[in-house]
Simulated scan of single mutants.
Amino acid sequence: MTEEPLHRVEVTRDIVYAEGRIRVDGQEAVRDLWMDAYLPKGAGEDPLPVVIYTHGGAFHHGSPRTGYRVDGALSTSPEHYCRLFAELGYACFAINYRLGPEEPIASGIGYDEQRVERDTIALMMDRVSIIRQNLGMRPLDVSDPKDELLLSDTVLSATEDLWRAIDFVRSNAIDFGVDPDRIVLGGFSAGAVTSLNVAHGTDAGVAGAFMLSTAPIGLNIFETVREGSSAPRLLFSRANTICPVRSPASKVCCSTTMTSVLTTNSPGFRGLDISIRQGLRRSVLMARSNRLKIASWHLWTGQPVTADG
């Protein structure tokens, strides 16, 4: 007998939360940025805790609704994760953001320019080169200042877009029925990098971030992660760890990162203070003496896997 989910899920699609600048045929243009909202039905009168989920794809492809194949592995779609969160009582928002093929134009919204470290994009060039080749795009050379600016602006634009998505959710907290002080960010690959940048590189003031396959790229977070600080909690797990936990409704195999957030005192976020949070915090602290060492934590090919059937 199939166990019923705690809550049914109401989905609202194509909610425009901001606009973003891009280039089209060399000319500056503006496009809408949108999100999908997954809200639990019958969750009570108290404001809901929030998860804002950012998809992966090496900052070049990916979608809030679908997975994609990388090196033969099929990533679990953000929609599946958001449905799982909503079934357990979270309000979950999956965001669309600007990607590399659009040539995003960063504007500095939400972060201090002094925290920008453009040369850190070298950490992701192996994966970006493969993705660009698969997409039929020209290769990039980060030793070329124009290419470094193009790719770093892509990473920073994603940071800006997530920051503005948080601002939108907070501004509409009453309409969504959510608690603006209980927002956690999450994602994998590029989405994990973006969640880390916003949680620890901006003034977003979120409660925490869970990340699958991440690295410090774009913003310098090494001065914000300190022992005993009140900075947002970081939840971290190995990218290739898969657990047999499934959503009764969506039948999705979920990574240990997401499961740890969901099953520990869910859905109140008291579960953020658990042992798994030590992982990335320790690695960031240790990496101050050797920043490239933390790159080994970013396993680009270790995507969560969609269960069959």
Results as ranks from 00 to 15, higher is better:
M1Y: 08
E4I: 10
P5K: 12
R8H: 11
I15D: 02
V16I: 15
Y17D: 02
A18W: 10
R21H: 03
I22R: 11
A29N: 10
A29I: 01
V30C: 04
D32Y: 00
D32A: 14
L33D: 04
L39K: 13
E45N: 12
E45A: 15
L48G: 05
Y53Q: 12
F59I: 01
H61T: 07
H61P: 00
P64V: 08
P64M: 11
P64T: 08
R65W: 05
R65Q: 13
T66L: 13
T66P: 00
G67W: 11
Y68D: 10
R69T: 15
V70P: 01
S75E: 13
E79W: 03
E87M: 05
R98L: 12
L99Y: 03
G110H: 03
E113C: 00
E113L: 10
R115C: 04
V116W: 06
R118Y: 07
D119N: 07
V128Y: 08
I130H: 10
R132G: 08
L135A: 15
M137R: 12
D141G: 06
P145T: 11
K146M: 07
D147E: 05
E148D: 09
L150H: 08
V155A: 10
L156R: 09
A158V: 08
D161F: 11
S171H: 10
A173L: 05
D179A: 05
F188H: 15
A190F: 08
G191F: 07
S195N: 09
L196E: 06
L196R: 10
A199I: 07
T202P: 07
T202L: 06
V206M: 12
A209C: 09
P216S: 11
I221R: 04
F222R: 04
E223D: 15
E223I: 00
T224L: 00
E227Q: 11
S229C: 11
S229G: 15
S229I: 04
A231H: 07
A231L: 02
F236P: 00
S237M: 09
A239M: 03
A239Y: 01
N240C: 09
C243V: 14
C243Q: 08
R246A: 02
R246Y: 15
P248G: 11
A249K: 14
A249T: 14
V252D: 03
C253L: 14
M258A: 15
T263G: 08
T264H: 13
G268P: 00
G268F: 04
R270N: 09
R270K: 05
R270I: 02
G271A: 07
S275C: 03
L280K: 06
S283T: 07
S289D: 10
N290V: 08
W297Q: 14
H298L: 12
W300T: 09
G302L: 09
T306S: 14
T306M: 12
